[in-house]
Simulated scan of single mutants.
Amino acid sequence: MIKLGFNLLFICLYCFPFVYFSMYQDFSNGSMIGYLLMVISTSIIAFFAKYTKNTIAIILGNIISMDISFYFITKMQGNEPWAGYFKPLTPLHLLITTNTTPLTHIGQLFKYHTSIYCYATC
């Protein structure tokens, strides 16, 4: 029951549209603080999820966060300055790039951690 509670907590924390928030902060304020907050907060959530062995929450939360960010980014598509701000990428390409890169690194870390654990115990 506690594991289910942790899973739901991590999924709910991860559901925040981090990529959209970062892109919006960059567009409206010209500030990269949003990207920094995204990296720090997702790293902390992923660390605690991995620490409590709730790795599925990281993947589900990231997918849901990407979906929510995708919704908000498509709502901004009619805004011409928004579409041209993130050149040479479009906002949707930046969403995909920004959202899949951490998953790749997290997957590599889990694989590395598992191989070290297996090597030490096998």
Results as ranks from 00 to 15, higher is better:
I2P: 07
K3I: 09
K3D: 14
K3C: 06
G5E: 05
F6R: 04
L8H: 04
L8T: 11
L8Y: 04
L8R: 02
L9S: 09
L9Q: 03
L9H: 01
F10G: 02
F10C: 02
F10Y: 14
I11C: 02
I11Q: 01
L13E: 06
Y14W: 05
Y14I: 00
C15A: 14
C15N: 06
C15V: 06
P17L: 05
P17M: 05
P17C: 04
Y20S: 00
F21Q: 09
F21W: 08
M23L: 02
M23G: 01
Y24T: 10
Q25L: 14
Q25Y: 05
F27E: 12
F27P: 10
G30N: 13
S31Q: 09
M32F: 15
I33A: 11
I33H: 08
L36D: 03
L36N: 04
M38F: 12
V39E: 05
V39F: 15
I40N: 12
I40Q: 12
I40R: 09
T42C: 07
T42M: 11
S43A: 12
S43N: 05
F47D: 00
F48M: 11
K50N: 06
Y51L: 08
Y51R: 10
T52S: 06
K53P: 09
K53I: 10
N54P: 07
T55N: 14
T55V: 13
A57H: 06
I58M: 07
I59H: 03
I59G: 03
L60D: 06
I63G: 11
I63K: 10
I64S: 04
I64H: 09
I64F: 13
I64W: 11
M66N: 03
D67I: 10
I68R: 02
I68A: 06
S69D: 13
F70I: 01
F70L: 11
Y71G: 00
F72Y: 13
F72Q: 04
I73H: 09
I73F: 15
I73K: 08
I73P: 03
K75L: 12
K75N: 09
M76V: 04
M76Y: 12
Q77C: 05
N79R: 09
E80D: 13
E80V: 11
P81K: 12
A83T: 14
G84I: 05
G84A: 05
Y85E: 12
F86A: 10
K87M: 13
P88Y: 13
T90Y: 01
P91E: 01
H93F: 09
H93W: 12
L94P: 01
L94N: 01
L95P: 04
L95H: 05
I96Q: 02
I96A: 06
I96S: 03
T97S: 15
T97L: 15
T97Q: 13
T98C: 08
N99I: 06
N99W: 10
T100W: 09
T101N: 08
P102R: 01
L103C: 10
L103K: 02
H105Y: 15
I106N: 00
I106W: 00
G107I: 06
G107E: 08
Q108V: 15
Q108A: 14
L109F: 14
L109M: 13
L109Q: 12
F110G: 05
K111Q: 07
Y112C: 00
T114P: 00
T114Q: 07
T114W: 03
T114M: 08
S115K: 15
I116L: 15
I116R: 11
I116G: 05
Y117W: 10
Y117C: 07
Y119G: 08
Y119N: 14
C122L: 13
